[in-house]
Design a protein around this nucleic acid. Structure first.
Lengths: 158, 158
DNA sequence: GTGCGAATACTCGGATACCGCGTGTCCGAGTAAGTGAGG
DNA sequence: CCTCACTTACTCGGACACGCGGTATCCGAGTATTCGCAC
């Protein structure tokens, strides 16, 4: 999985912590997390296209959460960055596996390999969709009390 | 995910259907499924290293299941081909996110983003580990009765 | 006919190129703030 | 002092290179078969 997912998660979390109407620019995040600004911008554009962020152009512009934090799931983030395609792609090689005389009936239903892999991926997606930004934020504050105000101070102070 | 997983699954399934002591060579599988022989061989070597297949060199050599089909899980196959690394890699960018004055205490426990992502991946791995080759084979025969003997005939006849 | 030895054909196994996609970068369009002059 | 137009600085957004991991291939090491020959 691409590292853009991690970047997106931390950016979204920071925005959730700030929870203000003031947008935050790519440059701020890039400097804070020590990331290449232009490439980070590219990733954030993916989040905009997915409807997770809204962008304000012009001076003093930047990005802002487009939805409340409890309605943004990890599934949304992963789908926005990695794309909606399944990780496992069935190319139907089974149909070439048994010569020409194989009856069509064998291939009407979906491939059993595909089915089993999709079951596993579905479990993954369910687990992702079950966790929201608010959950992750709450867990972070539970494990390290006071981290919220620290992030807030770091992003507003500098 | 690489397509080698699909190849490995079909090869293992075919070997499970044949369930004989006679090994099957890479060339046979490559011709049957219309795949590049050398590259398929490379993938099968990964399965050998993982202990899922055993190889018999020399003429009339080939590959054979190293374990009974009900003790080979999809997790084993994916781990053998894709590697044991997690899909999501945490690079700890959070530590650079809040300046220098951040207390060490914040980073003693694992990152909350990492935790949530690992939860989802764990669900995926659990679902993979819960399904064995025997299950997939049974499902295939349930959806398309008679496919077993067809595969057997295709691999032994040609 | 039978036993033995060399030639042979076929297999796995690792070392070697190729290529598409994720990674990284640059520049232009657009907007809001700041500035100065004019009324 | 207030208004307004202009300059300016800063932002997003998409178009343009680079490098690495998956993809694909080739050749050598090794073994069971097979053929031929001597006995």
């Amino acid at each position: 999985m691409g590292q853009g997912v991690e970047w997106a998660m931390h950016v979204l979390l920071s925005l959730a912590w700030l929870d203000g109407d003031q947008p935050v620019s790519t440059a701020k995040f890039a400097q804070a997390y020590d990331l290449p600004p232009a490439y980070l911008n590219k990733q954030l554009q993916s989040l905009v296209k997915a409807g997770l962020l809204e962008s304000l152009p012009g001076a003093r512009g930047g990005f802002r959460l487009a939805k409340p934090e409890n309605r943004i799931t990890l599934m949304d983030v992963v789908a926005a960055i990695e794309g909606p395609e399944d990780a496992f792609r069935c190319t139907e090689i089974r149909q070439r596996g048994m010569g020409e005389g194989a009856p069509e009936r064998f291939f009407e239903d979906t491939c059993a390999v595909q089915s089993s892999m999709q079951r596993a991926e579905l479990a993954w997606r369910k687990a992702l969709a079950a966790q929201t930004l608010a959950d992750v934020r709450a867990e972070a504050e539970r494990h390290a009390p006071g981290v919220g105000v620290a992030v807030r101070a770091a992003h507003t102070g500098t």
